[in-house]
Structure formats: C-alpha cells, structure tokens
C-alpha cells in the first residue's frame, strides 16, 4: 500500500540525467529487439537517434533523443510517487517542445495540481509533468492523471 499523501502544489523531481549517446541507442535497439521477441538483441537501420550522419541529413546538428525516453522518465517518476497505480489506471500526455541533443542534462519534474475523490471512492490526482534542462528550459511538457483505487 502506498502511504504517500499527495497535496496540490507539491513539486517533485528526479536527479539530473545526462541524455547520453548510450541511452539514445538503447531505445533504438530495443525497438527491433522487442518486435522480434526472441530473447536476443536485434538492430535496425541508422536512425536520427543513433547515427550523426543520418541525423544531419535530416536537418539536425547531430543525434537527438527519441521523445519516448523523456516520457518514460516522467512515467518512472509517477510510479515512484504513486506506485503501480500509475501503471494501471492513468493518463499521460507529453509534447516534445525542444529537441534533446547528446549530453544535455535532463531533470524530470511533476507538480500536483488537484486531488479529489470520485463517487466510486477513487482518489483522482492531476499533475503537470515536464522535463527541463539544467537552466530550466522545458524540453518536454505534459500532464498526467492517476486514479488510485479506494481499496
């Protein structure tokens, strides 16, 4: 049972993480590996997330992170806060407002907006969620709703 008692206005963040080349490549490799689903690693054609030359050919200065990495870091923070409820009955929306380039420091944040109980007795929590760099510039923005079962 998660004993966390959320209050509107509370702000949470994770320690900064560098968006390294290795983190970007890991997500690229996960895609065909999961598609094949045979327990072995599989690779794919060059992408803007793991190949500088290809990224430059597509108009970028170098590789950029897949937006799903920052979305997953936000999901991770929500599971830290609310336990598996965040993975069972929830909504998460994110928008990638700035490209995240190699070795940018990323801080994952969440702020509780509202907490209320619905007629079924479930606790409904709404949040602003985002990732920012170490100068406070927002890279990914979004919102989340978590439904915590009364039991």
């Amino acid at each position: 049972m998660n004993q966390f008692n959320p209050k509107p206005g509370s702000l949470f963040s994770l320690a900064p993480r560098l968006m390294t080349r290795e983190r970007m490549r890991r997500y690229v490799d996960a895609q065909p590996t999961i598609a094949v689903d045979d327990g072995r690693i599989h690779t794919q054609e060059p992408t803007i997330h793991d190949d500088d030359e290809y990224a430059r050919s597509q108009g970028f200065p170098g590789i950029i992170a897949d937006g799903m990495i920052s979305t997953n870091w936000i999901l991770g923070l929500l599971v830290d806060l609310f336990g598996s409820a965040a993975a069972m009955n929830s909504r998460l929306s994110t928008k990638y407002v700035k490209p995240i380039y190699e070795d940018i420091s990323v801080i994952t944040c969440a702020k509780i907006l509202t907490v209320h109980q619905n007629p079924e007795g479930e606790k409904i929590i709404t949040l602003d969620v985002w990732c920012e760099d170490n100068s406070g510039i927002k890279l990914t923005v979004g919102s989340a709703t978590i439904c915590i079962d009364a039991t």
């Binding site: 993480r17 983190r23 890991r26 997500y27 490799d29 996960a30 799903m68 990495i69 979305t71 997953n72 870091w73 999901l75 991770g76 599971v79 830290d80 336990g83 598996s84 993975a87 069972m88 929830s90 998460l92």
Partner: peptide, 23 residues
C-alpha cells in the same frame, strides 16, 4: 523497461507481478 530505466517491480519483477507500461 530496461531500455528506458523503469526499474520498478511492476515492470522488472516476477512474471506474475509484471504489467505493461502505457508507454
């Protein structure tokens, strides 16, 4: 979940406890 650093038990634990992340 390994690729995106979701190390929680509901994603990386015993098979009976695993749930799919919405992502």
């Amino acid at each position: 979940c390994h690729a995106v650093e979701l190390g929680h038990d509901c994603f990386q634990g015993n098979i009976g406890d695993l749930v799919m992340p919405s992502t």
